[in-house]
Simulated scan of single mutants.
Amino acid sequence: MTPPHLPARRRFFARSSGLIAAAALPAWAHASASPNAAAGRSLEFFHTHTHERLNLVYAVGDQFQPDSLGRLNRFLRDHYTGEVGSMDPLLFEQLHRVRALLGARMPYDVISGYRCPDTNGRLRQKGGGGVAKKSLHMEGRAIDVRLPGVPLAELRDAALSLQAGGVGFYPDSQFVHLDTGRVRRW
Protein backbone atom coordinates (compact mmCIF):
# COMPACT_ATOMS: atom_id res chain seq x y z
CA MET A 1 0.00 0.00 0.00
CA THR A 2 1.23 3.47 -0.89
CA PRO A 3 1.48 5.92 2.03
CA PRO A 4 -1.25 8.60 1.80
CA HIS A 5 1.14 11.40 2.84
CA LEU A 6 3.05 11.26 -0.47
CA PRO A 7 2.22 13.94 -3.05
CA ALA A 8 -0.27 12.79 -5.71
CA ARG A 9 2.38 12.42 -8.42
CA ARG A 10 4.57 10.22 -6.20
CA ARG A 11 1.56 8.10 -5.16
CA PHE A 12 0.79 7.53 -8.83
CA PHE A 13 4.33 6.45 -9.65
CA ALA A 14 4.57 4.31 -6.53
CA ARG A 15 1.32 2.54 -7.41
CA SER A 16 2.12 2.11 -11.07
CA SER A 17 5.83 1.39 -11.15
CA GLY A 18 5.25 -2.33 -11.58
CA LEU A 19 2.65 -1.75 -14.25
CA ILE A 20 4.58 0.70 -16.43
CA ALA A 21 6.56 -2.02 -18.19
CA ALA A 22 3.44 -4.12 -18.60
CA ALA A 23 1.59 -1.14 -20.08
CA ALA A 24 3.91 -1.23 -23.08
CA LEU A 25 2.38 -4.56 -24.11
CA PRO A 26 -0.75 -4.63 -26.22
CA ALA A 27 -3.89 -4.61 -24.09
CA TRP A 28 -5.04 -8.00 -25.34
CA ALA A 29 -1.75 -9.48 -24.10
CA HIS A 30 -2.67 -8.31 -20.59
CA ALA A 31 -6.12 -9.83 -20.92
CA SER A 32 -4.88 -13.13 -22.30
CA ALA A 33 -2.34 -13.47 -19.51
CA SER A 34 -4.81 -12.66 -16.75
CA PRO A 35 -6.94 -15.29 -15.04
CA ASN A 36 -10.05 -13.22 -15.81
CA ALA A 37 -9.40 -13.03 -19.57
CA ALA A 38 -12.65 -14.83 -20.32
CA ALA A 39 -14.54 -12.08 -18.47
CA GLY A 40 -13.17 -9.52 -20.89
CA ARG A 41 -12.25 -5.88 -20.63
CA SER A 42 -14.89 -3.43 -19.58
CA LEU A 43 -15.43 0.29 -19.30
CA GLU A 44 -17.93 2.40 -17.44
CA PHE A 45 -18.96 5.94 -18.36
CA PHE A 46 -21.16 8.85 -17.31
CA HIS A 47 -21.77 11.47 -20.02
CA THR A 48 -21.75 14.94 -18.47
CA HIS A 49 -23.94 16.47 -21.22
CA THR A 50 -26.56 13.77 -21.85
CA HIS A 51 -26.51 12.32 -18.30
CA GLU A 52 -26.49 8.83 -19.79
CA ARG A 53 -24.55 5.97 -18.21
CA LEU A 54 -22.92 3.00 -19.90
CA ASN A 55 -21.18 -0.03 -18.44
CA LEU A 56 -20.14 -2.83 -20.77
CA VAL A 57 -17.56 -5.41 -21.79
CA TYR A 58 -16.07 -4.12 -25.05
CA ALA A 59 -13.50 -6.89 -25.69
CA VAL A 60 -12.86 -10.50 -24.77
CA GLY A 61 -9.33 -11.76 -25.32
CA ASP A 62 -8.12 -10.18 -28.56
CA GLN A 63 -11.64 -9.74 -29.95
CA PHE A 64 -13.59 -6.50 -29.81
CA GLN A 65 -17.31 -7.07 -29.31
CA PRO A 66 -19.21 -5.56 -32.29
CA ASP A 67 -22.44 -4.95 -30.35
CA SER A 68 -20.51 -3.18 -27.60
CA LEU A 69 -18.59 -1.05 -30.10
CA GLY A 70 -21.93 -0.01 -31.62
CA ARG A 71 -23.26 0.95 -28.18
CA LEU A 72 -20.07 2.91 -27.48
CA ASN A 73 -20.37 4.74 -30.81
CA ARG A 74 -23.94 5.73 -29.95
CA PHE A 75 -23.04 6.75 -26.39
CA LEU A 76 -20.08 8.89 -27.55
CA ARG A 77 -22.08 10.58 -30.33
CA ASP A 78 -21.86 14.31 -30.98
CA HIS A 79 -24.03 15.55 -28.12
CA TYR A 80 -24.81 18.78 -30.00
CA THR A 81 -26.24 17.18 -33.16
CA GLY A 82 -26.86 13.54 -32.24
CA GLU A 83 -24.66 12.42 -35.14
CA VAL A 84 -23.04 9.05 -34.43
CA GLY A 85 -19.45 8.52 -35.51
CA SER A 86 -17.24 5.46 -35.50
CA MET A 87 -14.89 5.48 -32.51
CA ASP A 88 -11.43 3.94 -32.71
CA PRO A 89 -11.43 0.79 -30.49
CA LEU A 90 -7.80 1.51 -29.56
CA LEU A 91 -9.11 4.52 -27.65
CA PHE A 92 -11.06 2.11 -25.41
CA GLU A 93 -7.88 0.12 -24.84
CA GLN A 94 -6.15 3.30 -23.67
CA LEU A 95 -9.00 4.16 -21.31
CA HIS A 96 -9.04 0.63 -19.91
CA ARG A 97 -5.28 0.62 -19.34
CA VAL A 98 -5.31 4.07 -17.69
CA ARG A 99 -8.06 3.03 -15.30
CA ALA A 100 -6.15 -0.17 -14.45
CA LEU A 101 -2.91 1.77 -13.85
CA LEU A 102 -4.71 4.08 -11.45
CA GLY A 103 -6.68 1.33 -9.73
CA ALA A 104 -9.79 3.46 -10.32
CA ARG A 105 -13.26 2.10 -9.71
CA MET A 106 -15.46 5.07 -10.65
CA PRO A 107 -16.87 5.52 -14.16
CA TYR A 108 -15.17 7.97 -16.50
CA ASP A 109 -16.94 11.32 -16.83
CA VAL A 110 -17.13 11.99 -20.58
CA ILE A 111 -17.02 15.61 -21.67
CA SER A 112 -16.64 15.00 -25.41
CA GLY A 113 -16.30 12.01 -27.70
CA TYR A 114 -17.13 12.16 -31.40
CA ARG A 115 -17.65 15.61 -32.93
CA CYS A 116 -19.01 16.12 -36.44
CA PRO A 117 -17.18 18.68 -38.62
CA ASP A 118 -20.00 21.26 -38.26
CA THR A 119 -19.86 21.10 -34.46
CA ASN A 120 -16.08 21.30 -34.50
CA GLY A 121 -16.25 24.38 -36.73
CA ARG A 122 -18.83 26.09 -34.50
CA LEU A 123 -16.76 25.41 -31.39
CA ARG A 124 -13.67 26.84 -33.10
CA GLN A 125 -15.60 29.99 -34.05
CA LYS A 126 -16.75 30.45 -30.45
CA GLY A 127 -13.08 30.90 -29.61
CA GLY A 128 -13.10 28.92 -26.37
CA GLY A 129 -9.68 27.49 -27.23
CA GLY A 130 -8.49 23.93 -27.41
CA VAL A 131 -10.48 23.02 -30.55
CA ALA A 132 -8.15 21.98 -33.35
CA LYS A 133 -9.09 22.61 -36.98
CA LYS A 134 -8.33 18.96 -37.83
CA SER A 135 -9.45 17.58 -34.47
CA LEU A 136 -9.18 13.82 -34.00
CA HIS A 137 -12.62 14.04 -32.35
CA MET A 138 -14.01 14.30 -35.91
CA GLU A 139 -12.37 10.95 -36.75
CA GLY A 140 -13.58 9.22 -33.59
CA ARG A 141 -10.00 9.02 -32.36
CA ALA A 142 -10.24 11.35 -29.33
CA ILE A 143 -12.10 11.67 -26.07
CA ASP A 144 -12.13 14.23 -23.23
CA VAL A 145 -12.58 12.69 -19.78
CA ARG A 146 -11.98 12.88 -16.06
CA LEU A 147 -12.11 10.20 -13.37
CA PRO A 148 -13.93 11.15 -10.15
CA GLY A 149 -11.68 10.66 -7.14
CA VAL A 150 -8.49 10.79 -9.23
CA PRO A 151 -6.57 14.07 -9.38
CA LEU A 152 -6.48 15.38 -12.94
CA ALA A 153 -2.67 15.46 -12.95
CA GLU A 154 -2.58 11.75 -12.02
CA LEU A 155 -4.96 10.93 -14.85
CA ARG A 156 -2.73 12.88 -17.25
CA ASP A 157 0.43 11.18 -15.96
CA ALA A 158 -1.09 7.71 -16.31
CA ALA A 159 -2.15 8.46 -19.90
CA LEU A 160 1.30 9.86 -20.72
CA SER A 161 2.98 6.76 -19.30
CA LEU A 162 1.28 4.60 -21.95
CA GLN A 163 2.91 6.48 -24.84
CA ALA A 164 -0.16 5.44 -26.87
CA GLY A 165 -1.23 8.75 -28.41
CA GLY A 166 -1.81 12.41 -27.66
CA VAL A 167 -2.57 13.66 -24.17
CA GLY A 168 -3.89 17.16 -23.51
CA PHE A 169 -4.19 18.62 -20.02
CA TYR A 170 -6.99 21.12 -19.39
CA PRO A 171 -7.02 21.84 -15.64
CA ASP A 172 -9.22 24.95 -15.97
CA SER A 173 -11.90 22.93 -17.77
CA GLN A 174 -11.27 19.87 -15.57
CA PHE A 175 -10.56 17.22 -18.20
CA VAL A 176 -7.80 15.29 -19.93
CA HIS A 177 -7.85 14.70 -23.68
CA LEU A 178 -6.69 11.28 -24.95
CA ASP A 179 -6.35 10.33 -28.59
CA THR A 180 -4.92 7.63 -30.82
CA GLY A 181 -2.83 10.02 -32.90
CA ARG A 182 0.91 10.38 -32.67
CA VAL A 183 2.47 10.53 -29.22
CA ARG A 184 2.53 14.15 -28.02
CA ARG A 185 1.47 16.27 -25.08
CA TRP A 186 0.14 19.75 -24.42
Score class of each variant (00 low, 15 high):
1 M>Y: 12
2 T>Y: 00
7 P>V: 14
10 R>K: 15
11 R>Y: 06
13 F>N: 08
13 F>I: 09
14 A>R: 07
15 R>N: 00
16 S>C: 05
17 S>P: 05
17 S>R: 15
18 G>N: 08
24 A>N: 06
24 A>M: 13
24 A>T: 15
25 L>K: 11
26 P>R: 13
28 W>G: 06
29 A>M: 11
30 H>L: 09
34 S>F: 12
37 A>K: 07
38 A>T: 07
39 A>L: 15
39 A>E: 13
41 R>I: 10
42 S>M: 05
42 S>P: 09
43 L>E: 03
46 F>D: 04
47 H>Y: 08
47 H>T: 08
48 T>S: 12
48 T>F: 01
48 T>D: 04
50 T>N: 02
51 H>E: 10
51 H>C: 10
58 Y>C: 00
58 Y>T: 03
63 Q>I: 06
65 Q>T: 12
66 P>S: 03
66 P>W: 04
67 D>N: 12
68 S>W: 01
69 L>E: 00
69 L>K: 05
70 G>N: 15
71 R>Y: 00
71 R>F: 10
71 R>A: 08
71 R>W: 05
72 L>W: 03
72 L>P: 02
73 N>T: 08
74 R>H: 07
77 R>Y: 03
78 D>N: 02
80 Y>F: 01
82 G>A: 08
83 E>A: 07
85 G>E: 10
87 M>W: 03
88 D>I: 01
88 D>G: 00
89 P>I: 00
93 E>C: 02
93 E>Q: 09
94 Q>R: 01
94 Q>W: 11
94 Q>E: 11
94 Q>S: 09
95 L>H: 02
95 L>Y: 10
97 R>C: 02
98 V>I: 09
99 R>Q: 14
102 L>R: 03
104 A>L: 04
105 R>G: 12
107 P>Y: 11
111 I>G: 15
113 G>V: 03
121 G>D: 12
123 L>Y: 11
123 L>W: 04
124 R>C: 14
126 K>A: 08
128 G>R: 14
128 G>D: 11
130 G>I: 03
131 V>L: 11
132 A>Q: 14
133 K>G: 10
134 K>M: 08
135 S>L: 08
136 L>G: 01
136 L>M: 06
137 H>M: 09
139 E>Q: 09
142 A>K: 07
144 D>F: 10
144 D>L: 08
145 V>M: 14
148 P>M: 03
150 V>P: 00
151 P>E: 04
155 L>Q: 07
156 R>W: 11
156 R>Q: 15
157 D>G: 05
157 D>N: 05
158 A>F: 05
161 S>A: 13
165 G>S: 07
166 G>W: 02
167 V>Y: 01
168 G>T: 04
169 F>C: 06
172 D>M: 15
173 S>L: 13
174 Q>N: 15
174 Q>I: 15
178 L>V: 01
179 D>P: 01
179 D>F: 00
180 T>S: 12
181 G>R: 12
182 R>T: 11
184 R>V: 14
185 R>E: 02
185 R>A: 08
186 W>M: 13
186 W>E: 04
